[in-house]
Computed example of a mutant assay.
Amino acid sequence: MNATVADLMRRNLLDVFSEPDAERRNAAIAVTYAQDVVWHEPDRVNRGREALARRAAELLAQSPDWVMRPDGPVSVNDDLGHLAFHYGPAGQPPIVTGMDIARCKDGVIIELYTFVNGSSQPA
């Protein structure tokens, strides 16, 4: 059964980018993204599931006590999904906000764009 766009957006945020366990994260990657997924970050482009998995592991290692949290519901428009997020230490106000926009096809994400707004903390 194919996942909905909303399911994929939640899985992307919670089961991949908030999952510290590599085995569970890799299992989620296998069912969430196309083999040749392209992930656009503000400073780089990651091509393929393996590159996405490596980068997700890097991000989690950089801030092991931080978690991604949805900032509102998933928005869907045909094959596009949008989900805003908060990112920061568990149980604390977010340090970073942003959003993911994904193009989906046949029950997987084929292209992902991540926008980061930077710190949400007062200067």
Score class of each variant (00 low, 15 high):
G72S: 04
L83F: 05
D78A: 13
Q121L: 15
A3L: 10
P93D: 05
D7P: 12
Y33H: 06
A57V: 01
L8V: 03
K105S: 13
V67Y: 01
Y33I: 03
A3W: 08
G118S: 02
V67W: 00
D100K: 10
S119T: 07
A57L: 08
T32G: 13
R54Y: 11
P42F: 14
D65A: 10
Y33F: 14
P94Q: 11
A3H: 14
L13N: 00
D15Y: 07
Q92F: 06
G118F: 06
D36T: 11
E19H: 07
L52P: 00
H86I: 03
N117K: 07
V74A: 02
T97E: 12
W66A: 11
V108M: 08
P42W: 14
R47E: 15
D36S: 14
Q92M: 14
T32F: 14
H82Q: 10
R69E: 09
R47N: 08
L59W: 13
P70W: 00
V96E: 07
V38I: 12
N2D: 12
N117Y: 06
W66Q: 09
L83A: 03
M1E: 14
N117M: 09
L14H: 03
A6H: 03
R55S: 09
D36C: 06
V38S: 12
L13F: 08
D15G: 01
V45H: 05
V116T: 10
D36Y: 11
V5L: 04
S63A: 11
P122E: 03
S119E: 04
A34Y: 09
M99H: 02
R24H: 09
V38K: 06
P94D: 08
P20G: 00
R25L: 05
A53N: 06
T32E: 12
A84L: 09
A123N: 14
L80I: 04
I109L: 11
V37W: 01
T32N: 12
A53W: 04
L14N: 01
Y87W: 12
D7Q: 14
L112V: 02
R54V: 15
S63F: 10
H82A: 08
D71W: 01
G48P: 04
S75F: 05
M68N: 06
P70I: 01
A102F: 05
M99P: 06
S75H: 15
Y87H: 03
E50A: 14
Q62W: 11
P70Q: 03
N46P: 07
L59Q: 15
